[in-house]
Design a protein around this nucleic acid. Sequence first.
DNA 1: AATACCACTTACAGCTTTTGTAAGGTTTCC
DNA 2: GGAAACCTTACAAAAGCTGTAAGTGGTATT
Lengths: 225, 225
Amino acid sequence: MQRIVIVEDDVYLREELIHTFQKAGYDASGPASFESVEEELKALRPDLVVLDVNLPGKSGYELCKLLKAKASFAILILTARDTLSDELTALGLGADDFLAKPCHPDRLIARARRLLKTYDRQLCAVLRAGPLSLDTDTYKLVYSDKFLILAETEGKIMRLLMERYPHIVGKGELLSGLWGTEEFVDENILQVNMSRLRKNLSEIGLENVVKNIRGKGYQLEVERL
Amino acid sequence: MQRIVIVEDDVYLREELIHTFQKAGYDASGPASFESVEEELKALRPDLVVLDVNLPGKSGYELCKLLKAKASFAILILTARDTLSDELTALGLGADDFLAKPCHPDRLIARARRLLKTYDRQLCAVLRAGPLSLDTDTYKLVYSDKFLILAETEGKIMRLLMERYPHIVGKGELLSGLWGTEEFVDENILQVNMSRLRKNLSEIGLENVVKNIRGKGYQLEVERL
DNA sequence: AATACCACTTACAGCTTTTGTAAGGTTTCC
DNA sequence: GGAAACCTTACAAAAGCTGTAAGTGGTATT
């Protein structure tokens, strides 16, 4: 079943939305606190997030931007401020749809269904990091209008780098992520695969993207889009 | 550059839309006659189609449905009839967005840009046939919530079958499509690969989907979604 | 400047996957 | 019942992927 998470501070409306989606056959829920929405969403792995703009603390737009930098789920902005400029801002930040409150449940469901269809978890098992997208099933890496299909080992490395982007990924993490354990594994094999990965990346114009942090590990470095 | 095709019978509005999109940096055009829109669209290979609902002859909804059965492009419905039920119909038929006329150019551009982003030609070099989707770069075939990664030869066969769906693909077409020529190629190799393909398809619950037409060729047979 | 350490690269060989050949079985139609 | 078309399985060659080995180059520390 597809998971929908509602981020909305008005308890009453939140419950109503959750109920609406549940009735339509989705697994809907919504956090009650907004301290660590990002972590919660990461843990919940939703297929779609319905986001209110006026949240206590952080602005919904800010959150949308943050989520979209790495999101592999759709975001639907739901707001009472429905001017054209609000809509343009939302879409510009990467939101996938924008609806004004109050919104007829049928319209909301129809829009949500449409988003879930194109964001089909399987079809686009996609991980993003800046201008890069990686299909984690096939290891197809897309950069601007070029793409590259990575072998399994290189793909797994790329996945780790993108998952942690923009942070450093320790050598230990890479070793245990790829070979199960970091004991009894020659560190050289990591270097060999890094070398191969870099060579392949350069084929689609991605030079100096995988940076080594001496003694620590590796880090992805691409200009944010 | 991304191609946008406007399907709109009002000459005045059509030219205005084309101009708007061109100013925004897209390759926009629109046919003046609506006799054979389907063929035209097939030839133009657009990334996005902006579709009016009230067309002479065929209804825009009908066209939308037909196109979406095989479309690898986004469809945005633009209409003067902006009731909720119109919107629900459009979305139900597979349209990707629905806007009411008159529509502010900025909103239209923003919505179009958003669609083009998710329908990224590279990321989803996707071919559809009924409930099936095939990434033609990686040969990842998706069916409902399962997927399968095909080897190159099987993938190419699947591609031909889906491109011609729901029509028959001749044995000669398959042979020359896969091995360049249909001379000097043992027909058996096609049978072997068909066998392998069918076996793999059955792994994700697709039984009896590749049908043989004795003496003619092969045909894909899936219940339309 | 010497040393130790870390990182990079290339070549090679074993392994896996993919592909076509061959051969025998099954279905269909006259 | 027999021929033609189609299906299936097994096998071996070819291609691609992966880890080992060994040597080079760079950097930090003394």
